[in-house]
């Protein structure tokens, strides 16, 4: 089972109304984007991390690990902001220069600050989403969308797709092992051809599965249309509500003061 999925199902605030968790995450995300201040972003990361550990009971390092992975991608994406490449040396006296052949790679403190701010802003927003992803399983989010009167067809698609990600991953895994144990990946080209076979086989497999699923659903009285299922009963956590308010107020306060 996927590790994020695993925590989403087993954390201490799993049964809290997803509206409450999603509300907090979305507001914090918006505050990070709108206020656009490094201190606000850092504080947001701290709040989300803190709540994930303290309220949801997640291990300290899990949140960090997800964040580090995101940080890596964010840094890659902002290299272009921090550095600029030109054919002539920039005139700015503050610029750091690095000649590479005929090109000049340059950067200024302002560029670096801009890039860092961008990374932090995105990181703050990402930490809000991480909090939601690590504390709320997808079935609960789909349930929330249903309550928000999202299109039933989209909701059914999400329900079935999410379930079948795991079913197909499982059969992919088994097919791969069956090929590998018959030396299907013993050389590069053999591996390429095996992977091709695997892909086409998986497609056929998915198609046949979908037909058998349809039969099984029909057997349970499905008449087409919306897949109706029981809504889950959640509880409201006043403690989390209080902390959410504190988080939002402190983020706003920091922005006002600075």
């Amino acid at each position: 089972m996927h590790i994020i999925d695993c925590y989403a199902y087993s954390n201490k605030i799993r049964a809290v109304d997803p509206a409450q968790k999603a509300g907090l995450a979305v507001i914090v995300l918006l505050l990070c984007l709108v206020f656009n201040h490094p201190a606000v972003s850092l504080l947001a990361v701290a709040w989300m991390w803190g709540l994930a550990v303290w309220q949801a009971g997640l291990p300290v390092l899990i949140f960090g690990r997800v964040l580090v992975a995101e940080l890596f991608f964010l840094c890659l994406a902002t290299v272009a902001v921090a550095l600029s490449i030109s054919l002539t040396a920039p005139a700015n006296p503050e610029a750091w220069l690095l000649p590479v052949g005929p090109l000049w790679i340059s950067s200024t403190p302002a560029d670096i600050y801009k890039a860092a701010n961008l990374v932090l802003r995105a990181l703050g927003a990402a930490s809000a989403m991480n909090f939601l992803a690590l504390t709320t399983p997808l079935v609960d989010l789909v349930d929330l969308l249903r309550r928000l009167r999202f299109s039933p067809i989209l909701i059914d698609l999400m329900t079935v797709m999410y379930r079948f990600i795991f079913v197909l991953l499982d059969s992919l895994n088994r097919m791969y092992m069956a090929q590998d144990s018959r030396l299907g990946y013993s050389s590069y080209w053999r591996g390429m051809s095996s992977a091709g076979l695997l892909g086409s086989r998986l497609f056929v497999d998915a198609f046949q599965r979908s037909r058998r699923l349809q039969t099984a659903l029909d057997a349970r009285g499905y008449e087409g249309g919306h897949l109706q299922v029981l809504p889950t009963i959640y509880y409201r956590s006043n403690k989390l509500l209080g902390m959410s308010a504190a988080a939002i107020l402190s983020l706003t306060a920091v922005w006002l003061v600075l």
Binding site: P137, L138, V139, T159, V160, Y162, R163, F166, V167, D170, R209, R212, L213, A216, L217, R220, G221, Y222, L227, Q228, V229, L230, T232
Partner: peptide, 16 residues
């Protein structure tokens, strides 16, 4: 595996 369409056990049982 081919009959269970929902990732939530309770929801799947409630379908019929």
């Amino acid at each position: 595996d081919e009959q269970l369409f929902s990732a939530s056990v309770a929801q799947d049982i409630s379908f019929g």
